[in-house]
Design a protein around this nucleic acid. Structure first.
Length: 447
RNA sequence: GCCCUGGUAGUAUAGUCAGGCCCAGUAUGUCCGGCUGUCACCCGGACGAUCCCGGGUUCGAAUCCCGGCCAGGGCGCCA
């Protein structure tokens, strides 16, 4: 293909009168007896190309949807065209043809089913709604990375293939690894803690896998996590980081993808910091007061999370001080013998006794769903082993983990945001598959 | 893994409850023709469906029954 100097459509609007070359896809054509309109699209927008019969080589050129063209000519202002600017070509080159008809309706006249669109995902990306979702997602990712990089956090890359299967909870995917068995990582947890113990403030954006046989609109077997970890920090330290990071992400999305959010019908409100801190115990009381059959110690269902959001009345808030049995073994328990912990427990609960059952873990709810959770970690090997036993697990199976804290481990804490989950909330989607370019669920492995 | 609902042209749907009137209707699409600068252009014509797969009931099945696969939703599960 002959190379040419290309101008993007958005830029062309500001270069009226200059001879330039556009390149992109045919969105649709409107052919009349004495005039022809070709709607050309590139990553920056659409423009109407106007062809008159006095140029028969262009007027009679056969064109189909999604054919790839380069069009040379000039943009002109027009009071007839709805967009205000249109394009008068002096040459059109067909760079590649698209097969017809298209297997999905990317103009969304008769919007194809999600399953059909996922089968043709590369074409679906060209439809306005899908395109907008991933542009918003990109703005969120970029803002996450920029905010943390700008505040002294170092990005690191954890391994995705791991050797140990002895991690209590979720099911792992086993894969053959030469003469051994290996597993797909279901969390960068240990790795981010190990990195933090040298680099102090770290973050990563990494895929994780869970072999859970869940089959819901909010679960995938492969997701991307945005994680941070930092030293000399407790749960409140990183909750503060979380709310600032989240607000920055939302502000950036609102500013950088205003057009996309409008197309998606989203009016983003930026929650005010600091977010309200609601204790788990208080949340249980609120739900019980609303007639929910829930007991202290239970986890919240999705409906209860939504109801709680209504009761709290804030778009974003924290749920903190969880019962130890609800959270992972490495969550730091309160210590009522510690002076500061005792004062906090006394102020919050009127007694220090409950401290024996609470850990310094938190969830962040935004728009009615849990988008992030985190904890202050246990950095003391003996306490860690005690908590592993408390959870009914065998400390011998966790020696690889406990051992990482024997050589000068400072107190530390961290959290994790699910990328697809937050994209769902921000873009207003109810199925998480809409928010993952190539989702992996229980049945789907392609494309 | 359980429950509910569904699977019909490229896409999206009607028809299924009450089997025959359906060699399957409509919209959109594709192709062809026509046409006041259109903008979801419009108008006309044509094309396009093993009615998800397998089995059964029946004179007769898109329609009823059984099994399977897949999809959407609800629940469960969830470091």
């Amino acid at each position: 293909m002959e190379m040419f100097e290309r101008t993007y459509i958005e830029e062309a609007r500001h270069r009226v009168g200059e001879r330039i070359t556009l390149a992109g896809w045919v969105s649709r054509t409107r052919d009349l007896k004495k005039i022809r309109f070709i709607v050309l699209r590139d990553r920056t927008g659409e423009i109407q190309v106007v062809v008159k019969p006095d140029t028969p080589e262009m007027f009679n050129l056969s064109l189909g949807r999604e054919d790839v063209l380069s069009v040379t000519g000039k943009a002109v202002e027009s009071d007839v065209a709805k967009a205000g600017v249109e394009f008068l070509p002096d040459g059109i080159e067909v760079i590649n043809r698209s097969q017809q008809p298209l297997p999905v309706d990317i103009l969304e006249n008769k919007k194809s089913d999600l399953d059909t669109r996922l089968n043709w995902r590369f074409l679906d990306f060209r439809s306005p709604t899908t395109n907008a979702i991933f542009r918003v997602q990109n703005a969120l990712v970029t803002a996450f990375r920029d905010y943390l990089s700008g505040n002294g956090y170092m990005e690191f890359q954890p391994p995705c293939i791991i050797g140990s299967a002895s991690e209590g909870g979720a099911d792992l995917f086993a894969i053959p690894y030469f003469e051994k068995m290996a597993y797909l990582a279901q969390s960068p947890q240990l790795y981010k803690q190990m990195c933090a113990m040298s680099f102090e403030k770290v973050f990563t954006i990494t895929p994780i896998w869970r072999a859970e046989k869940f089959n819901t609109p909010t679960h995938l077997n492969e997701i991307r996590q945005m994680d941070i970890e930092q030293t000399f920090a407790d749960d409140e330290t990183v909750m503060d980081v979380l709310e600032k990071t989240l607000v920055h992400m939302l502000e950036e999305a609102k500013e950088k993808t205003a057009d996309q959010l409008e197309l998606l019908g989203r009016e983003l409100t930026i929650p005010k910091t600091p977010f309200r801190r609601v204790t788990y115990t208080n949340a249980i009381e609120m739900l019980q007061g609303a007639g929910e059959p829930i007991l202290w110690g239970d986890d919240f269902t999705k409906t209860q999370e939504a109801l709680l959001t209504e009761l709290v009345g804030d778009e974003a808030f924290f749920l903190k001080d969880w019962p130890g049995e609800q959270k992972t073994f490495y969550a730091m328990p309160y210590d009522k013998e510690d002076e500061r912990d005792a004062r906090y427990l006394e102020e919050t609960y009127g007694s220090t006794e409950i401290g024996d059952r609470l850990v310094r873990a938190f969830d962040c709810l935004y728009g009615g769903i849990e988008i992030s959770s985190g904890t202050m970690r246990i950095h003391l090997p003996e306490l860690l082993k005690e908590r592993i036993r408390y959870k009914g697990l065998n400390p011998d199976n966790f020696e690889y983990y406990v051992g990482a804290f024997r050589y000068g481990a400072p107190p530390h804490a961290g959290w994790s945001i699910g990328l697809e989950r937050i994209t769902m909330t921000v873009t207003g989607q109810s199925n998480i598959r809409e928010c993952c370019m190539f989702p992996r669920d229980r049945d789907r492995l392609v494309p």
